[in-house]
Design a protein around this nucleic acid. Sequence first.
DNA 1: TGAAAAATTAAGCGCTTGTTTAAAATAAGT
DNA 2: ACTTATTTTAAACAAGCGCTTAATTTTTCA
Lengths: 207, 207
Amino acid sequence: MINNLSTEEKIKDAARKVFMTKGFSGCTTREIAKSVGINVALLNYYFRSKGKLFELILEAALSDLIDGMVEVFHQDMSLEDKTRLIIDKEFEFLKKYPEFPLFIHAGLNQESDTEMDLSSFLGRLYQTGIFEQCEKAQAEGKMRKVNMINVTLLFMSNCHFPIMSKKLISGIYQISEEEHENLLIAHQEIVKEMLINYLFPNTNQHA
Amino acid sequence: MINNLSTEEKIKDAARKVFMTKGFSGCTTREIAKSVGINVALLNYYFRSKGKLFELILEAALSDLIDGMVEVFHQDMSLEDKTRLIIDKEFEFLKKYPEFPLFIHAGLNQESDTEMDLSSFLGRLYQTGIFEQCEKAQAEGKMRKVNMINVTLLFMSNCHFPIMSKKLISGIYQISEEEHENLLIAHQEIVKEMLINYLFPNTNQHA
DNA sequence: TGAAAAATTAAGCGCTTGTTTAAAATAAGT
DNA sequence: ACTTATTTTAAACAAGCGCTTAATTTTTCA
């Protein structure tokens, strides 16, 4: 492991890892500091408090979430292709960071003095023109007339939940790590077909 | 509030409420005891430790989850009707206890000395005959040939996630409490139609 | 080179945590 | 009534918590 990162960055990396797996109140500042190889005091020297560090990590995670969508939305392709691409990208990302969905939702539900402001993310989505593209497709009858928030919910539900429910699903159905991986591979295709069929009913489903 | 419940039951009720909203490490035994109006020692007198109490609550919650499914599955009706009914029931239940999904998944991810055994739940699902009913429908070409675990995932994803993502969704889209309620009402119908269309493609979608 | 600035540490602060102990209050049984 | 069991409490335990202070090491740069 090369160690050319700044201390500040190393703390953030360690904090991200620990917060993601254990949550805010499930870990200690000493634990984070130890995993970096530094003193607790230094952690507070850079980030003032555990809470401020957590907010920083959470905000960055949310920003990553939006970044993934924006990257696909502003490309020049059909809505069907965007659908396929975003589901593939989302599954790929979430398989790499399976704690991500739970971390975000538990983090937002964490009672904190200041409620996090998420409004800035909406602007970034608007700038991609994805909403206009959908409106146009809906007006032309090519896309089912569904509120865009519901569409967001459909995508997130079917990508995030399968990942975060790993322990529940593999616990109930008594399946191994490997079987669960195959389950997700199959599910990715199911979700793609189901969402495309539902949102673009006139399209031939055999692309 | 009438107080004719046993102390043990009162502690469980309070613990359920507190654990659900704040998680295991997000609350203290003193907090739970105080909300019952008893001493911390009494809590440990009945349940030995915070961890044991938590496991009890989590297990009961998981049992409730399965109960809801079982209740529908073992009824005598078509798969399409069961689909509609279970989605309606699930939304109704989760709107009443919105912390439920997050609690279960965060709880299962809680590192604990003993991994919780969930295998008993599968047996209860089998006994309803739902799997045979699906196999038969699939053999007759009335139901899409999809693995039952994937089917489970589709249902849970589209019912649980919309509820648990309230803060994220209403934060990004800047919508009020009331608007989010209406969003869920619309989403419930969307999910029903989408899942029925996908799982039973030959059925006329205008039931 | 040497003084000022930045980075890092050891130690400890006050407080809270989960849990236990020993005593007191209440209920049960004979 | 009296002994025994059960339920409940007050108090305290050691350990760990987030965070700070004051000193020390390292870096900066004139």
